[in-house]
Simulated assay, not measured.
Amino acid sequence: MNKMKEIIAELNSELVAIRQKLHSEPELSWEEYETTNYVAAYLENLGIPYRRTEPTGIIAELKGGKEGKTVALRADMDALSVYEIREDIPYRSKTDGKMHACGHDAHTAMLLIAAKTLHMVQEEIEGTVRFIFQPAEEVATGAKAMVEQGAMKGVDNVFGIHIWSQIDTGKIQCNKGPAFASADIFKVRFKGQGGHAAVPHDAIDAVMIASTFALNVQTVVARTVNPLQPAVLTIGKMEVGTRFNVIAEDAILEGTVRCFDKEVRSHIETQIRHYADQIASLYGGTAEVVYEYGTQAVNNDVASASLVERLAAEHFGADAYHIDDPTMGGEDFSFYLDEVPGCFALVGSGNTEKDTRWAHHNGHFNIDEDGLRVGAELYVQYALTWLSEN
């Protein structure tokens, strides 16, 4: 492990340069063609075999000099439709309206350097390391597509990292059990009967239906879900009405549901449908509900997460392991954990002096690049230790 630290330290300037290049050239979900080409060329230069997935993405594999099991390391690659506000960084996005506002550029850079480091000690590896460079995490469809294209075939354990601006640089968090919530999307369309604002008794007001639903559906969580089971129901978008003196005939609401328990998830969906139907009926209208299951909850394997906790203490300091509650954010890494045991860790990049505590998906988002080396090293440490102990 000391050897690994030395190698990654020597590669740090290259690690930062890769991240900055990727940051300046963001590509949206399922459009990561140039990023895929860059990763492919980098792996090819190292001599690590890989294959492309469709339409974007890379699966590579490094077979060690000794027989053993297979561990997979995953990094996502896609950017967001976010305008980068900061003007003070030389590697600012070259495309207005597209930005690596969540740190996926860092994940890809860290995994490439991890691959390079492991390649240097290939003959000492007891087993196989698979590298998954995944597209489309931000739309929650990339991991599922990678699994369908064989990413988990023959894999015994999987590990992923997310850079995290709300944790101090150098800290590592890996919850045992629930880590990220499931993330679903719902749309409710209410149908009333339009009319003139002066004669409301001749119409069925979709504004009233939608407003009543928006207020009352919050009691699904507040009054029908066990308070010991975390859950969030948020309506983030409402479209209703066309003109100040026209009673609206249609209303569309869109929202998200986040929780950790499958039964709670199913219950909330049922209740949303029930509330929509009953409230629409109360006013004489109708309701149509479309509920889409997105990412599953990320439930870390306890043994795998315990390994991360041990590695953090042994290699980054006794106080490096950060303990905090799970997040209600979603992560499609869950689809890998449906296939094999593993875990998903957070690596801190928050530094007030460097102005890197902005929330993810914010136009000011940036990372403390001192955290890159921690992530790259953790990828390597996890792979080597898991393989040697299993």
Rank of each mutant, 00 (worst) to 15 (best):
E369L: 04
A345G: 04
I252N: 06
W358D: 12
N299Q: 14
L337V: 00
E249M: 10
M328P: 08
G317W: 13
Q271M: 15
E269P: 04
A276I: 11
E288N: 14
G329L: 06
T352R: 11
Y283R: 10
D319I: 10
D250W: 09
L311K: 00
H267C: 09
L372Y: 03
A313T: 13
G350R: 00
T352N: 12
F316E: 02
H364P: 07
T295Y: 12
D261W: 01
D338Y: 05
Y275S: 03
Y283K: 14
Y379R: 02
E288K: 13
G317P: 14
E254T: 15
I268V: 15
D301A: 12
T270E: 15
I268P: 08
E249N: 12
S349R: 01
V340D: 04
F316H: 02
P341K: 09
G285L: 08
L307H: 01
E339A: 15
Y275M: 10
S281F: 13
T385Q: 02
I272G: 05
D301K: 11
D355P: 03
H315Y: 15
Q381G: 02
T295F: 09
A276K: 05
S388V: 06
L384S: 07
V264L: 05
Q271I: 06
V302H: 12
E339W: 00
Y379F: 15
R357Q: 09
I367M: 04
I279Y: 00
V374C: 00
E339Q: 15
E254I: 08
N390V: 05
H315Q: 13
H360I: 12
I272R: 00
F316G: 05
E249A: 14
F316A: 06
N366D: 14
A297G: 10
A345V: 02
D325Q: 14
R357V: 01
L384F: 10
G285D: 13
E331V: 10
N362V: 09
T356Y: 00
T385I: 08
Y283I: 12
F316D: 00
E331C: 13
R357Y: 06
E249D: 14
L387S: 03
Y275H: 07
S266M: 14
E249V: 07
E263C: 04
E389C: 02
T327Y: 10
N366P: 05
V340F: 09
G329W: 03
Q271R: 15
